[in-house]
């Protein structure tokens, strides 16, 4: 039966475990999966620039032995002629077996999923959801920390518009004994509905601070984010806030020896390059983990669609 993934919460914790198990099996035995999607086509519909997520999906499909149809620029697609998202999804359903879609409007992936006759994976819908990034984050935390519970997780930077932050909080809030430290300038604090509906509702401890240095020593995971120009209506606000937090090797000295530093990438200057060689820097591992989790998700959805 056709099924789409729009939000990380569309997947139960059991399904997350199953996807992680598949991803780890792919890592251990890649040859076993080299033809798993032979004869299948993934359509990547990207109505907003994102080289890395698109390449990750495409690499994932190629490594499963499948093929890729790609729309990389809305300016050259039918959307520029005024075609609706729903019609685009219906049309692409005639050509491909599964869709990965990024769109600047929030909820666009749900519209596509409702219209398409094939599974749709949300590859980012504006500032709303980005479930496969969260899947990459979860596999990284599992591989680096060994568990999803008992962690103090610092989230730093743009917590207001950062969809990866909201999704990660939603995902990690389902596991026990975690604590969140929310590090942001006043203007980019976590929206009250996330605090109220997720953290307070579930009684999850959290603290808010504007100081990265003060928060750093207690953290097991530090999730850095970029202040995104495209989420601001006002250029002045963006310029004022873009350099709020910069993690460098000097600051990292105060952190735990087994801290896991993550970032959804691309970074601008939130993490200085002198951190890259530190064994605690996990953001490029995160990229690789994202590909494995996308492979696991494509496999799962294609298998379910065939049943």
């Amino acid at each position: 039966m056709k099924r789409s993934v729009i939000d990380i919460l569309d997947l139960s914790t059991e399904e997350i475990e199953s996807l992680i198990a598949t991803a780890q099996d792919i890592i251990a035995r890649p040859a076993e999966y080299a033809h798993a999607c032979a004869g299948k086509k993934l359509a990547t519909l990207f109505f907003e620039p994102s080289t890395r997520t698109r390449l990750s999906f495409e690499a994932a499909m190629y490594e499963l032995g499948g093929n890729v149809l790609s729309v990389t620029d809305a300016a050259t697609s039918s959307a520029s002629k005024g075609e609706s998202v729903a019609d685009t999804a219906r049309t692409v359903s005639c050509y491909a077996d599964i869709i990965a879609m990024r769109h600047p409007k929030e909820g666009a992936a749900l519209v596509a999923a409702n219209a398409a006759s094939i599974p749709v994976i949300n590859a980012g819908d504006g500032g709303h959801c980005h479930p496969t990034q969260t899947m990459a984050d979860l596999l990284t935390i599992r591989r680096e920390k060994g568990a999803f519970s008992g962690l103090t997780i610092g989230l730093c930077g743009d917590l207001k518009f950062g969809r990866t932050v909201h999704s990660l909080i939603n995902a990690m809030a389902r596991y026990p004994d975690n604590k969140f430290v929310l590090i942001s300038p006043e203007e980019l604090k976590l929206p009250s509905y996330v605090k109220k509906d997720v953290l307070q509702e579930k009684g999850i401890p959290y603290e808010q601070t504007t100081s990265l240095e003060a928060a750093l020593p207690q953290l097991d995971v530090l999730y850095m984010t970029r202040v995104q120009r495209e989420r601001f209506f006002n250029e002045e606000d963006y310029l004022r806030l873009k350099d709020s937090y910069i993690l460098d090797a000097a600051k990292l000295k105060a952190a735990k020896g087994d801290l896991c530093v993550m970032h959804p990438l691309p970074r601008v200057n939130e993490i200085a390059t002198d951190v890259d060689a530190d064994p605690r820097a996990c953001y490029f591992k995160q990229v690789l983990n994202g590909k494995y989790m996308r492979m696991a998700l494509i496999l799962k959805l294609l298998k379910e669609a065939a049943q």
């Binding site: 609706s84 729903a86 409007k105 666009a108």
Partner: peptide, 13 residues
Amino acid sequence: KNPRCITSVERSI
């Protein structure tokens, strides 16, 4: 009322 919502541009929804 969210200007970033797909309902602000998608027809027939």
